[in-house]
């Protein structure tokens, strides 16, 4: 079983996944950030691979990508940084990004390297179902990487079923049809989360986009297995002098006592 499978086997509620851009705020912050996230109580890490044209991201995450690229982040540098990560990081790690840099690196070579350093899965919002099924899915499976699809409030029930069949690991439920960092009221999306819950999907569901504090995390967790925080975390470490302290402080505001107990 994959690390992601094990996590959900053990924990079905209040799973917290945190997104951070690799190479941000400093080129060499990547591992430090991941350690701090694990120590602070995150259950899973989504490491963003910076891209020049991140269509699905809002200004905050895009700015962090731009910064990371300026810092010198590339896929080769990233894999070098992650080379020994499994000595210190035990929670599941997914890489999240856009397809183009991966195509240049070579899709199969990318999967092979990712797997070798201990990455568990991928989230590539601009890799469509058709191309996944015909070209890339088999390569991901061959290298034992989970692949997570997104669903939105506009996604039809039929399509959710299909995506649920294809996804491995979990389903990423975007809380509103929006780029990252938009603060739409989670309450407005209750219907949608309930609908997902009632569909009794194969995969656990994590709610992403717009989760920023304990209230929005709690709200998301009422109908899903957990939630993903991105923009709010990037903001929290953007200007921090001590990334480790800033991360712990941020996470204790979300998972509170649980974090302290770890």
């Amino acid at each position: 079983m994959t690390r992601i499978g094990e996590l959900f086997g053990r924990k079905r509620a209040r799973v917290l996944s945190v997104y951070s851009t690799a190479g941000f705020p400093q080129l060499n912050s990547t591992i430090e950030v991941m350690k701090a996230l694990e120590a602070g109580g995150a259950d899973m890490i989504e490491l963003g691979m910076p891209y020049s044209d991140p269509l699905a991201d809002g200004p905050v995450i895009q700015a962090s990508s731009t910064k990371a690229l300026e810092n010198g982040m590339t896929l080769a540098v990233l894999f070098e940084q992650l080379k020994d990560m499994r000595r210190s990081i035990h929670i599941p790690v997914l890489l999240m990004g856009y397809i183009n840099p991966i195509l240049q690196y070579g899709f199969e070579r990318f999967c092979e390297t990712a797997r070798r350093v201990g990455v568990d899965g991928l989230i590539l919002p601009d890799l469509p179902i058709y191309e996944y099924e015909t070209e890339y899915g088999p390569i991901l499976r061959k290298h034992g990487l989970d692949f997570v699809f997104l669903v939105t409030p506009e996604t039809s029930a039929e399509r959710i079923r299909k995506v649920d069949m294809l996804s491995t690991g979990f389903l990423y439920a975007v809380s509103s049809s929006s780029t990252t960092g938009k603060n739409k009221d989670i309450g407005e999306q209750e219907d949608y989360f309930q609908r997902l819950q009632q569909m009794k999907l194969r995969n656990p569901v994590l709610v992403g986009f717009g989760i920023r504090d304990r209230d929005s995390f709690d709200a998301a967790c009422r109908h899903a297995n957990g939630a993903i925080i991105g923009t709010a975390y990037i903001r929290a470490i953007d200007k921090a002098t001590n990334v480790d302290a800033a991360t712990r402080e941020f996470l204790s505001g979300i998972v509170g006592v649980e974090a302290g107990a770890l």
Binding site: L55, A56, I99, P125, D126, L127, P128, Y130, E131, F149, L150, V151, T152, E154, T155, R159, V174, S177, S178, T179
Partner: peptide, 19 residues
Amino acid sequence: EQGYYGKFGGAYIPEMLYP
């Protein structure tokens, strides 16, 4: 049907744009 001219084209879009 999928928007390909040979190996070029397609619709590489995030799910949010799908509808």
